[in-house]
């Protein structure tokens, strides 16, 4: 196991390096840069504007030099550099924004479990009943309906119908209840899809266990059904959840990109969306590398945890 973890850890920097090269090349392969946006968006098509801005932002430099300078700053100093369009230091902005995104991620995972586990359990225990069909329908709905669409409805309809907004403007922890209200709504919407996935996984795992010999034995011993489900069915079914919950952490990050835009939450998602429009390579590269690192870390933890909770798994 230790050897496996070490092998995986050694692979992390190489994977990140590869990702950094891919994102760097792809961003520069697309026509247009920050100078086009800065000069062109304001209607200035004067070549001098493009030239001065490109010089100022270092976009005139050789691409290979640009890459190694950027990489060197990250590796040697942990410095992601300056934003091209927002004239701010990326590390400082990251410090402000990463926690807001993390809060949405954590809350959405909590909601995912709150939705997925009970729904999956009920669906499995009442398998084949009307309740099962309804819950499965809702789970599939949660999986199928795009969360940006639900979010838009949540934003617009309360205003149209009742003249109120259920998602207030952003405030920090100085107003804890409002802050939680702001975070809870997008987190819940992200969790709808994850909850649907988990409900289906929990249901199928539990059904598999419900049909096993150990459950038949437990029932034959005369145990109450609640004890059978909680002790002999649910616990073994939890193993399958580990993988999927790990992936939900990554999906929650991806979901936050759209949710932060719609609910106007100053996190990394909102930041990167703006950066894409402004061709701010520096922000996009930083966020992609951080998201990738986060994904690699979570995947590693899930794999390790998976082997740990299930003795049958050996690496």
């Amino acid at each position: 196991m230790q050897a496996y973890i070490i092998r995986r850890l050694i692979l992390v920097p190489f994977t990140l390096l590869l990702i950094s090269i891919i994102v760097f090349i792809f961003m520069r392969a697309v026509p247009g840069d920050a100078a086009d946006v800065r000069c062109g968006a304001a209607g200035n098509f004067d070549q001098q504007c493009f030239d001065v801005v490109r010089e100022e932002l270092g976009l005139n430099e050789n691409k290979v030099n640009q890459y190694f300078k950027w990489l060197g700053d990250i590796v040697l100093r942990g410095d992601f550099g300056y934003s091209l369009s927002q004239v701010s230091h990326i590390n400082e902005e990251l410090g402000k924004r990463i926690w807001n995104t993390a809060q949405i991620g954590i809350l959405s995972i909590a909601f995912t479990l709150m939705i997925g586990i009970p729904v999956g359990m009920l669906s499995a225990v009442r398998s084949g009943t009307m309740l099962d069909y309804v819950l499965r329908f809702l789970a599939v709905m949660g999986l199928s309906v795009p969360n940006f669409w639900i979010a838009t409805l949540v934003v617009i309809f309360p205003a149209v119908w009742w003249g109120v907004r259920i998602a207030p403007d952003w405030v920090g922890w100085e107003e804890p209840l409002t802050h939680l209200q702001i975070l809870a709504i997008p987190a819940f919407i992200i969790a709808l899809a994850g909850g649907g996935t988990i409900a289906r996984i929990v249901r199928s795992s539990m059904l598999e266990v419900l049909r096993s010999d150990q459950v038949r034995t437990a029932r034959a011993k005369g145990l109450r059904e609640s004890a059978v489900v909680s002790r002999h069915v649910f616990r073994p079914s939890m193993i399958a959840l580990f993988t999927i919950v790990g992936l939900q952490f990554s999906l929650a990050l991806g979901g936050s990109v759209i949710m932060e835009s719609i609910f106007n939450i100053p996190g990394m998602g909102l930041w990167v969306i703006s950066a894409v429009g402004e061709r701010d390579f520096m922000i996009i590269q930083a966020v992609v590398v951080i998201f990738a690192a986060w994904f690699l870390l979570i995947t590693l933890l899930v794999d390790v945890a998976y082997a740990w909770v299930d003795p049958r798994i050996r690496y």
């Binding site: 934003v155 617009i156 998602a167």
Partner: peptide, 18 residues
């Protein structure tokens, strides 16, 4: 002057009187 990125959110703010 609030920064509201999403158009639907801007509309909701107007309709709600915010």
């Amino acid at each position: 002057d609030a920064i509201i990125v999403d158009q639907a959110a801007r509309e909701a703010r107007l309709i709600a009187g915010d």
